[in-house]
Structure formats: structure tokens, C-alpha cells
């Protein structure tokens, strides 16, 4: 291809090859959004009971929370985690298809395989993000001791950016070789980025991010009057959030996640070419 941005173009077009698959993934995203809403609602309930409970020790206060609420939250969290794994597994297959240069979208048929791949995808993302998260938390802790010291927060943001830059290549590297270990072979990953060229790599990710921001901004402007209409029509915050999360999950989240992973896979293909 003449230009590296053509991969972004291709990635934007790619989800339209099979609208049904986007919607199937969208259903999963919608369920996750609803579960998150339910967990939030239960959590508010728990916090309310917790704060109004008698007693001054933590154990005494927690003992007054109705166990059924805690069980519901835990159950919902587990279900949404499993669905998240399926989504991650699907993203794994999207990268796989991009690396194999297939133009159709992956199937949903093999749920067990999706779960397994999803676990790999999730673990790699988690491990790459764990260092910045620790630094961030440490920064918050330090700030509470001596205020006004924001340097650690800035460092953690930088770490987030660097780690996620590497993570994109690491995921594709793992998917291509189908070995979990390959995701942490930093030497190979950095070598592949160097093959592509750091400027090119950063440029294409930045470009993808700019395109994403523009799309999100435009969607926000389109959805604004719509949101206002629902708000006036239903007059209920929960209803509003529910309708918006259906729209968001069904069309936007699924499309964007397929788009991103397709581009990530394509970048890898360009690097190893």
C-alpha cells in the first residue's frame, strides 16, 4: 500500500463487511453495559446502607450490609467478566484475521476457544497495565502524604502511554505465534517496531486515535439532540442511561473495538512484511 494510513481506511471499512457480526458483538457489549448499570445501582444501595449503619468499626458496619446484595453484585460481576472474556476472545480473532489477511469477520461458533483466547488477551493487557497502575496508586498515596506533588501522576500517565504502545505490538505478536510467552518477548517486539520505524508506528497510532476522536465528537453532536429528546420524553435518568447504553453497545462500542483491533493487526502485518 502506498500509504500507512490506508490501513486505517481499511480498518474503518472492515466491520461493514458483515453487519450481523457487529450486531452480535454489540449485543454482548449491551449486556455488559446493562450489567454495569445493575452493579452500579446495587453498589449505591450498599454504600447507602453502609454509611447509615450503626457502629464505628469497619467489621461491624460491613456486617449490617444485607448479604443478598453482596451476592448479587458478585454474581453480576462474574457474569460480566465472562462476557468480557468472550469479547476479548473475539478481538483476539479479529487480530488473527488481520494478520492472516482475511477480509471476512471471525465467527462466534467456538465459544470455548473464544473464552480461552479472551483470557490470554485479558491477562496480557492486565500485565502490561499493572506497572503504571501501581505507580498511579503510589502517586495518589504520596499525594495524600505531601500534597501538590503531581510528578508521579505524570510519570504514570507516560508509563501508561508507553506500555500501551508496546501492548499493541505484543498482542499481535502473541496472536501470530499463538504462544502466550511471545507477548512478553520485549526484544522481539521492539525489534518488530524498529523494522516498521518508530515514527511510522507512533504516527499510525496517533492517526488512529485522531480518527477515533473525530468520530466520537461527531457521534456526540449527533446524539446530543437525541439524548435531549429521550430525556424530555421519559423524564427518567435510568431509562435514559439504558437507551443510550443500548445504542452505544450495539453500534458504537462493537464497531470501534473491531476497527481498533483490525488496525492493530494490520500494523503488525506491515511490520513483519
Amino acid at each position: 500500500m502506498a500509504s500507512i494510513t490506508d490501513y486505517v481506511k481499511e480498518g474503518l471499512k472492515y466491520p461493514f463487511n458483515d453487519i450481523k457480526k457487529i450486531l452480535s458483538l454489540g449485543v454482548l457489549f449491551t449486556i455488559i453495559n446493562f450489567l454495569a448499570l445493575a452493579i452500579l445501582e446495587k453498589n449505591i444501595n450498599i454504600v447507602r446502607i453502609f454509611s447509615s449503619a450503626n457502629g464505628n468499626t469497619l467489621a461491624l458496619k460491613s456486617s449490617q450490609i444485607p448479604p443478598i446484595d453482596v451476592c448479587t453484585v458478585a454474581g453480576l460481576a462474574i457474569i460480566s467478566f465472562i462476557i468480557l472474556l468472550i469479547i476479548n476472545g473475539y478481538q483476539y480473532s479479529v487480530i488473527k484475521y488481520a494478520v492472516d489477511k482475511k477480509t471476512d469477520l471471525p465467527e462466534f461458533s467456538d465459544i470455548l476457544n473464544l473464552l480461552l483466547n479472551g483470557l490470554k488477551y485479558f491477562l496480557v493487557s492486565l500485565i502490561y497495565n499493572i506497572i503504571p497502575i501501581i505507580v498511579l496508586i503510589a502517586g495518589f498515596e504520596l499525594q495524600s502524604i505531601q500534597n501538590g506533588d503531581y510528578i508521579i501522576s505524570v510519570i504514570s500517565i507516560l508509563l501508561f502511554i508507553i506500555c500501551n504502545f508496546l501492548l499493541i505490538m505484543a498482542l499481535a505478536n502473541m496472536v501470530d505465534s499463538n504462544k502466550f510467552k511471545k507477548a512478553f518477548d520485549l526484544k522481539e517486539i521492539i525489534g518488530k517496531i524498529s523494522d516498521l520505524g518508530w515514527m511510522k508506528y507512533i504516527g499510525i497510532l496517533l492517526f488512529t486515535f485522531i480518527i477515533y476522536s473525530i468520530i466520537m465528537l461527531a457521534l456526540g453532536i449527533v446524539l446530543m439532540p437525541f439524548t435531549a429528546f429521550i430525556a424530555i420524553a421519559t423524564n427518567q435518568a435510568v431509562m435514559l442511561i439504558a437507551i443510550l447504553s443500548i445504542i452505544e453497545g450495539l453500534f458504537i462500542n462493537s464497531y470501534i473495538s473491531i476497527f481498533f483491533n483490525r488496525v492493530f493487526g494490520s500494523v503488525y502485518t506491515e511490520a513483519v512484511k
Binding site: 494510513t5 486505517v8 481506511k9 474503518l12 471499512k13 492517526f207 485522531i210 480518527i211 473525530i214
Partner: peptide
Amino acid sequence: FIGMFIDGVKVVL
């Protein structure tokens, strides 16, 4: 239109 959009973004950038 997607290609057109990307090209437009490039020019604006």
C-alpha cells in the same frame, strides 16, 4: 465515503 473521510482528515492535519 470512508476513504473520502480519511483523506479529508489527512489534508486537515
